[in-house]
């Protein structure tokens, strides 16, 4: 059944894939992961890599409201009207999984106010290994861990590591200094995730965010073609 009342009626109630005019809405990609793993830095790098080819916007979910949004504003990765902060009441995972209403309103308002958009990145507040995005909110999700958080994280698994559409093992440049075994992390991740992709990333390296940006482009191509 096609619920076409969304096109003529008021704003959609859930993650309808179409705008009111019937066209495809923006692809929504969530970025989650533990505190300090480099989510905001990855979002900033993705914005710089993609902003000239795509119309994009960012929603942040902070523990302390607006901090991540303000980092992105200071870094000037996007014009301020393309960055929105959602306040999460000490529970960032609730706002991206159990009660997504504030985030849905943020993405809809961005499309209304600066749209049409190709891509919206929804960044979670730093949380634990079980925090994942609701499918009602995002179309695909990236889970960001880093080598300094311990090289046993991929082995331990958890919903973020095992089910995210893309796993980023970040800050690979630090591996020698923190005694993390990159090969082992990659192997453990492969074992946990079967065919799901893993990117080993150092934003300080020459390739930087390129692999992740390529993955985002492929997601967007699939979304637009669907």
């Amino acid at each position: 059944m096609h619920l076409d009342h969304h096109h003529n009626g008021p704003a959609a109630v859930s993650a309808d894939a179409h705008r009111k005019d019937g066209s495809h809405r923006a692809l929504r990609i969530g970025l989650g992961g533990p505190v300090g793993s480099g989510k905001t830095a990855t979002v900033a790098a993705l914005c710089r890599a993609l902003r000239d080819e795509l119309s994009l916007a960012v929603v942040t979910n902070d523990i302390y409201t607006r901090e991540d949004a303000e980092f992105l504003l200071r870094e000037a990765v996007l014009p301020p009207e393309r960055i929105t902060a959602v306040e999460t009441g000490a529970c960032p995972h609730t706002a991206i999984r159990d009660d997504i209403s504030a985030n849905l309103e943020a993405v809809e308002d961005l499309e209304d106010e600066v749209g049409p958009l190709d891509l919206i990145l929804v960044e979670s507040g730093g949380d634990n290994l079980t925090a994942t995005f609701s499918k009602g909110l995002v179309d695909a999700q990236i889970f960001v861990i880093d080598v300094a958080g311990g090289d046993d994280i991929p082995r331990k698994g958890g919903p973020g590591v095992t089910t995210a559409d893309l796993l980023i093992v970040n800050k690979t440049d630090l591996a020698p200094y923190v005694g993390s075994d990159l090969a082992r992390m990659a192997a453990d991740a492969k074992a946990q995730r079967a065919e799901l992709p893993v990117v080993l990333q150092s934003l300080r390296s020459e390739t930087g965010v390129a692999d992740t940006a390529a993955w985002v482009r492929s997601q967007l191509a699939a979304w637009t073609a669907a």
Binding site: V86, E87, T88, G89, C91, T94, A95, D98, D99, I100, S101, A102
Partner: peptide, 9 residues
């Protein structure tokens, strides 16, 4: 747990 945003207030 009714998902209507109350947790953030």
């Amino acid at each position: 747990r009714f998902p209507a945003g109350g947790h953030a207030h």
